[in-house]
Design a protein around this nucleic acid. Sequence first.
DNA 1: TTGTAGGCGTTATCAA
DNA 2: TTGATAACGCCTACAA
Lengths: 341, 341
Amino acid sequence: MTVTIKDVAKRANVAPSTVSRVIADSPRISEKTKQRVREAMKELGYHPNFIARSLASQAAQVIGIVMPSSADQALQNPFFPAVIRGISKAAHEKRYALQMSTGEKESEIYERVVEMLQGRRVDGVILLYSRQNDKLMKYLLKHGFPFVVIGKPHQKAEQVTHVDNDNVQAGKDAAAYLIARGHERIAFVGGNPQYLVTVDRQNGYAAALQEAELPYRPEYVVHEEFLQEGGQEAMRELLSLPEPPTGLVVADDLMALGMLKTLDEIGLRVPEDVSIVSFNNTLLAEMSRPPLTSVDIGIFQLGYEAAKSLIEKINNPSEPVKRIIIPHRLVERGSCAGRTG
Amino acid sequence: MTVTIKDVAKRANVAPSTVSRVIADSPRISEKTKQRVREAMKELGYHPNFIARSLASQAAQVIGIVMPSSADQALQNPFFPAVIRGISKAAHEKRYALQMSTGEKESEIYERVVEMLQGRRVDGVILLYSRQNDKLMKYLLKHGFPFVVIGKPHQKAEQVTHVDNDNVQAGKDAAAYLIARGHERIAFVGGNPQYLVTVDRQNGYAAALQEAELPYRPEYVVHEEFLQEGGQEAMRELLSLPEPPTGLVVADDLMALGMLKTLDEIGLRVPEDVSIVSFNNTLLAEMSRPPLTSVDIGIFQLGYEAAKSLIEKINNPSEPVKRIIIPHRLVERGSCAGRTG
DNA sequence: TTGTAGGCGTTATCAA
DNA sequence: TTGATAACGCCTACAA
């Protein structure tokens, strides 16, 4: 049925191995034979079987994308499509295919990724997150599978190639921006603190307060899911405080959107009553009412560099560990106002 | 190095084929042997090699996702992550893995998809678009590869399983909504008319005008890219008309967002000066200023059903052709106002 | 119920 | 420069 290397070989009067060499464009085959073989391939409509090739060559030319939760859930946050855009660009440039993780719960994702790798479906993976004591990362390290993480690894960062922002500085910048505008009661809203990105930004926030000699108030630090609902919940918590904050550093645009919604329902105005600086600078930040001042973290670049590094690593296992920091910058919009006292 | 079926066989004192049968949970193997074999697998840390399995069984257990343009470009529109969410859910349920198309231009995408299929990396594909005279669709049909399209196939719709909305009706509903509010000068803004979704919605729009005995004015029909920039461009065109429209039916939220932006720059207000009904009801519709009245087309469902149908088809090639229509509904928000005369 | 052996379509190692 | 031939790891008749 399907035409194989053998059919081509017969047609061109050469051995299968010769055809294989022609496909690989081996320099040790005469131009004349190459010509003849290529013609035979055309005539027969030959297409290489990647599966067979992968089995023989022990390489799939596929990279796996691992999200922190089910694709269903993660893809609700525009951060993920955006990183994937970057990954996809780099993968395409190097002719790698892209496969996405599946699985609902963390344990299931873990198993599927192990399957992907052990099953040789992918040559390596990119983790689109970094969490504390990540079982998967330990596994990858232990078994020597090529991988790259987007974010800062919790442990053994010196053994793990990763692409990250300077999130401590970014968090500091965000808080300092509000402080410079006269805010003194500033809250921090992040995702689950097991995610390093939350911790770093929060530390930056704390450092900014300290530099400004403002008190760090634990009740002003809230952690919820990186989704709109998370933002709503966080806002409610903060508003229930006897002395609610006037400024908010929010680690994610989508969360900030939820907060905006809750504020709107309650009748509080942004930026008149509450100022917000958020993170990611996705389209949402631009589009919301009011548009959000947001820290651009170069999401596309994050993905692009991660994929490039992974592919390098796959092709050269002794490639030294790298750490790439993508610059961030605060984009001013309409969600912050000055404040006296 | 890696543990194979043979190692397990030795350890369990059985033949490799027996191990293979245990993996497949064949009923013709005694529970006792299964037990023993499974234990051996555990002890050795055996993981099946999917690649080898695929080669032998001629099935990859992977489905391919084909976007209309580069992933880089397409993923800018929230429509795509949303369909992928649905696809991913169904794929996960049936234990299929997901692979994404790569390629920049249409011709390159075509080639990569052919490679994917001929190279047996995927068992079938889902086209996330439908365009006129699609070379790829012809190819798939000709070679009998399993595929499903999201949208209405241009040709041979009776031979192609597809998941779609009733876009004619949806377009009609959108226009009728504006007509009912007293608008008489209503424009239609769609994507490239080679995409069937544009054509259908536009036809529905025209039908609504006709029913209301309003004139169809060609200058009120504009086609641009399904991106923000497309919307901006379209808006500029419409505003340059001697008699600009007061109502807009826009085939995509992201485009509508671009239009909102241009209107805002010019100082026209929505909905006071211009009313907008858009499509997709993505998060953007909810978040924009003002929030957009938008037709919800059940994007997640679209993806979910498509993946389910594809998998059925893969597992049963004689599965009859199906056509699934996902219901739509207009979600009222703040972008439309009544108008007298 | 289990084992033997050939094949899936390539690549890669030796020879020639 | 090219050809045989043995992997790659698994599946599946066919035998036993």
